[in-house]
């Protein structure tokens, strides 16, 4: 059997909670950067949230930490200053779709050449599990203890938000099992390839478990994301120009 080794850019495991999906996403990014041969000129722009733990001795890559919700415009600026670099924003659903939604919409509207990886776990993770725009109907969170009233607050699907703007590629994957993880990796690879080819704005959303804030065991939470979250956030490639 062939050897299976971690990407050289992965230095250690992160400080994430038990069962957090961010670790898998960071590994997929590291594998894709290696395979495309762009790891040396990659710049990660991290959010002030769970994803930023990849900066603390996990991924050996140039990185900038942006203010909360603002990795997309910071990545845009980094790409503008260093057009030869491969710049990606790595952020969560609360950051991309709520706090940084204006920046997301206008970057997609302009179709700026960059890659955005959004980890959607249906809650604000780092701040303590509050309700996010992506929280599912009736899902209990720290700020919706009786369950989310979806008639009042709605559920935001990013494809509805920016699908008709000038994005080049919008896809959604999950990291439930080996097959879905491989599909998600192919999406992430395409998002980076688009940037290398100067094709424009690419966004990949990855559905991921957050067992700590959903108050489940990791395996239960993964099952919940696979069965419930995919009802509201279907998987696939929605824009591919």
């Amino acid at each position: 059997m062939a050897e299976v080794r971690l990407p050289k850019r992965i230095m250690n495991s992160g400080g994430w909670c038990q069962g957090c999906g961010h670790g898998v996403v960071v590994r997929l990014i590291a594998e894709v950067l290696d395979e495309l041969g762009v790891a040396d000129k990659a710049i990660a722009v991290e959010d002030v949230a769970c994803g930023s733990m990849s900066m603390s001795g996990v991924l050996n890559c140039d990185a900038i930490m942006a203010a909360h919700g603002r990795p997309i415009p910071v990545a845009n600026g980094a790409k503008g200053a260093r057009p030869d670099s491969i710049v990606y924003a790595h952020l969560g659903d609360g950051s991309a779709y709520s706090i940084g939604s204006a920046e997301l919409v206008h970057t997609a509207l302009r179709g700026d050449n960059m890659t955005v990886i959004v980890v959607n776990n249906t809650v604000y993770g780092m701040t303590g599990g509050q309700m996010a725009p992506t929280t599912l109907p009736a899902e209990k969170t720290a700020s919706s203890p009786k369950g989310k009233d979806a008639d009042r607050y709605g559920v935001l699907n990013v494809v509805d938000l920016i699908g008709k703007l000038n994005a080049t590629y919008i896809a959604r994957g999950e990291i439930y099992d080996v097959a879905s993880t491989a599909k998600t990796k192919a999406m992430i690879k395409k998002a980076f390839q688009n940037q290398i080819d100067n094709k424009g704005f690419s966004l990949v959303e990855v559905l991921a478990p957050c067992p700590t804030n959903l108050h489940m065991t990791p395996v239960q939470c993964k099952e919940f994301v696979h069965t419930e979250a995919t009802k509201f956030f279907p998987l696939g490639e929605f824009v591919d120009k």
Partner: peptide, 11 residues
């Protein structure tokens, strides 16, 4: 290896 979030496995 493919599902581990904490990079525990290598072959």
């Amino acid at each position: 290896y493919r599902v581990c979030p904490d990079y525990v496995f290598e072959i």
